[in-house]
Amino acid sequence: GPREVTMKKGDILTLLNSTNKDWWKVEVNDRQGFVPAAYVKKLDSGTGKELVLALYDYQ
Rank of each mutant, 00 (worst) to 15 (best):
Y39S: 08
M7Q: 01
L51E: 08
E4S: 15
T6N: 12
W23K: 02
Y56M: 11
G33Y: 15
I12T: 06
V5G: 03
R3A: 12
D44T: 14
L16E: 00
L55M: 08
T19P: 03
L15D: 00
G33E: 07
R31F: 10
N20Q: 07
A38E: 09
G46R: 08
D11R: 02
Y39G: 04
T47M: 11
G46H: 12
D44V: 12
L16F: 03
F34P: 01
W23E: 02
T6Y: 14
K25I: 15
L15I: 04
M7A: 01
P36E: 02
V28D: 05
K49G: 08
R3Q: 14
N20R: 09
T14N: 07
N20D: 12
V52C: 09
G48Q: 09
L53P: 00
G10C: 04
I12D: 00
G10T: 01
P2W: 15
G48S: 09
A54N: 01
D22K: 13
Y58R: 01
A37M: 04
K42A: 06
K41F: 09
R31T: 14
S45C: 14
G33H: 07
G33D: 05
V40N: 00
L15S: 02
L43D: 02
F34I: 05
D44S: 11
K42L: 12
V5Y: 09
D11E: 08
L43P: 00
N29L: 07
Q32M: 10
K25E: 14
L55A: 02
L13D: 00
K42N: 05
S45M: 12
A54Y: 02
A37Q: 04
P36N: 04
Y58I: 03
T14M: 08
L53F: 06
Q32N: 07
D11N: 05
Q32V: 15
D30T: 07
G1F: 14
L13M: 10
L55W: 02
Y39F: 13
T6A: 13
D30Y: 07
P36R: 05
K41R: 11
N29T: 05
G10N: 05
V26R: 01
T47E: 14
N29Y: 08
V26I: 09
A54I: 05
R31N: 09
K8F: 08
W23G: 00
G10I: 02
D57E: 05
M7E: 00
K21C: 07
Y56N: 08
D57K: 04
L43K: 02
I12P: 00
V35L: 03
T14H: 09
V40L: 15
E50R: 13
Y39E: 01
A38G: 10
G1D: 11
K21H: 09
I12R: 04
F34H: 05
S45A: 10
E4F: 15
G48N: 09
V52A: 09
F34A: 02
K25Q: 12
V5T: 05
M7R: 00
Y56R: 15
Y58M: 03
R31C: 10
L55K: 04
L51G: 02
K9D: 02
L15Y: 02
L51N: 05
E4N: 14
K42M: 10
T19M: 09
